[in-house]
Design a protein around this nucleic acid. Sequence first.
DNA 1: ACAAGAATTGAACCACTATTCAATCCTTCG
DNA 2: CGAAGGATTGAATAGTGGTTCAATTCTTGT
Lengths: 199, 199
Amino acid sequence: MAYRSTDRVKARLSASRQRIVTAALEIMAQHGYAGCSVAAVAERAGIATGSVYSHFPTKADLFAEVFRIASQREVDAVSRAAGLEGTMAARITAVIETFAGRALQSPRLAYALLAEPVDPAVDAERLVFRRAYAHIIAGYVADGIARGELPAQDPDLTATALVGAFAEAMVGPLAAGVAGPDTIPNLIAFAHRALGVSP
Amino acid sequence: MAYRSTDRVKARLSASRQRIVTAALEIMAQHGYAGCSVAAVAERAGIATGSVYSHFPTKADLFAEVFRIASQREVDAVSRAAGLEGTMAARITAVIETFAGRALQSPRLAYALLAEPVDPAVDAERLVFRRAYAHIIAGYVADGIARGELPAQDPDLTATALVGAFAEAMVGPLAAGVAGPDTIPNLIAFAHRALGVSP
DNA sequence: ACAAGAATTGAACCACTATTCAATCCTTCG
DNA sequence: CGAAGGATTGAATAGTGGTTCAATTCTTGT
């Protein structure tokens, strides 16, 4: 027994793995999923193509993780922003401003996460992403109903429908690169009506 | 000049083209876009693989047409149903019942039209489909505002957001194969609130 | 220093499927 | 009928890009 992997090596491996994920994220933000060949990711990470496969069994596994991380970031940002607010109206405003603001900041990445055609295995991760959003919003809706701020409704359906509404409303602007100045306020007004917040 | 294509031949060609489109639609309804290899379409149409290419320059062109036709069918059905109604509330109810009812009738096809990963060139056609829905709804919304049934709002944004909401609310049920019995009524209630129809 | 074994390389491989095309079959018309 | 040209065939081709693996380089413990 002349070799057993040591902490230093383990750290290097983990750093390498991290660099792969980061490289994939950067390429997605720049050229979308379409630009993410394994070779391109490896090159940007500064390793050989084949080395990707000592960290991830398949490309789909790599991008499932990439989507998971990127999505979590978005969901966390929205959750954090909305959590600071007290009323339902303020919360949903924060959700939309954060979601839309961040999407417009990184339009290519947002498009990849929301709508770009991807491998079916990766698409599954996208559904998780959308459900995570819906889950947060459903919590707020249930809360709002309990506090009498909102009329009776199915929190899950409302939340799912709102997530769809937000995503669809952003796809056009994301493709164009900019949103009209009223897009976000209009979307907020839509959401307030849909929730039934008292004006 | 010993040959010039005659009407009978032209009819046969056009019938053949039609059979290709129909075969593609049937396979989509059965196995989704994923099952639609050119070879599979040709076999179902009863012709050789290569013959597809004497009717369509590329697979993407074929499926752009297939999506266009299938989408138009859906949009027409919704438009027809809603057109029979007078009030905004009744119209949007008809839109949702028709859209959701038809989707649940052909879940695999609906999933392919709405959400399945497809070739980017075909994806573009999907956007046209969604915009066509939005356009119809935007007309109703503008009408509703003019008649004082709805509060002031941006008809295009409301319509786009509603289309996203409908699609998102259907994706789960389509994947599961069935919708809970309250999905459609709840979605109708959501849309009524979002539009601001007076109760 | 050296042997054992792990990590890395990157060019070759492979699977998949859209697309092509030489050969063949049909249709038209003199 | 026979020649001209179009339509059809389906096996071969080709482009793409994920995945593999023999060779090489690097690490570790004696």
